[in-house]
Design a protein around this nucleic acid. Structure first.
Ligand SMILES: [Mn+2]
Ligand SMILES: [Mn+2]
Ligand SMILES: [Zn+2]
Ligand SMILES: [Zn+2]
Lengths: 155, 155
DNA sequence: GTCCTTGTTGCGACTCTTTGCAAATCATTC
DNA sequence: GAATGATTTGCAAAGAGTCGCAACAAGGAC
């Protein structure tokens, strides 16, 4: 995944391409998969120790607004960021076991288009996390044994 | 909107119906529309000044797990809660003007079912907030005037 | 009632993220 | 290149939400 396009877009939209922004972008592009703001900080501080976490968050917001990176909120831990490129996708997150499943972009196409048609609403469905229960966690809950007094704790 | 069912469900599932939980529930039921945890706190403290915000959050998580209340994350401000009852719905939130549109539950039915069929994943789509741009904010962005040097700020 | 177990609360500390502000940096115009 | 105005940064403080823990309340067994 490369960030050449990101640099161009930044310039073209009139934002400044500062060293900090470049380093954040390079870190995201260099990582495989998702990274947190704190992980970006750790990496950037190797070459520029003064970067502040606020700058990183501000940069991430900017890049997100320009659709150059996508954010995901796993719920219960820090947000994760990813370069918006070819392998776009959504995520299914199981609240039982934490497992995540990649969901092809197309699964939200119908919704996206009916919102556009019927509400003239252009939804931002770049990188979504849907919570729920995976098949295994669902199976584990069927057929509760008769005397399992702790079953309700796992509701 | 009444919370009788909520009380029954709480008892039936084995959780204790403490005064704090009752007060939180009554506050949510008594409000019209969404309430934040802080608003619940302000209301409850009128009769019981010692309630802690952590207790409120814990109660809200519990009620959410039992599908008795729904949560929405407006992004940029505190989460909002609502009694799960008849008028179930989702929300479209415009990032341009802040306007919110109610979206009938049915709009996510197809998605819900294809996830169930094709991934055996039971998604939790009780009360969703979808970000994007409303028709007016989209219209306002077409046909950028030639010399509007501040246009990009509004991206 | 007492004993015992388990669930719940309030408090304080902590994490993650956002915001206000003054100083620094950059682009533009003369 | 100096003056000017706008953007960006680092720092410190605040907001929102979570977690560990000791004290407390409830329920069951006897
Ligand atoms: Mn992803
Ligand atoms: Mn609602
Ligand atoms: Zn699972
Ligand atoms: Zn709008």
């Amino acid at each position: 995944m490369h960030h050449g396009k990101a640099l161009t877009t930044l310039k073209e939209t009139g934002y400044r391409l500062t060293p900090q922004r470049l380093m954040v972008l390079e870190t995201i592009a260099g990582a495989r998969g998702h990274v947190t703001a704190e992980e970006i900080g750790t990496q950037v501080r190797r070459t520029y120790p003064y970067i502040d976490i606020a700058t990183i968050y501000r940069t991430l917001h900017l890049l997100k607004r320009l659709h150059l990176v996508t954010e995901i909120d796993p719920g219960g831990s820090s947000a994760q960021y990813e370069l918006a490129g070819d392998g776009r996708h959504h995520h299914l997150i199981c609240e039982g076991c934490g497992k995540t499943i990649d969901l092809p972009l197309a699964y939200l196409d119908n919704l996206h288009q009916s919102l556009r048609r019927e509400f003239e609403f252009e939804a931002d469905l770049d990188h979504f996390a849907l919570r729920g229960r995976c098949s295994q966690c669902l199976a584990a809950r069927t057929g509760t044994p008769r005397k399992d007094r702790n079953a309700w704790k796992r509701l």
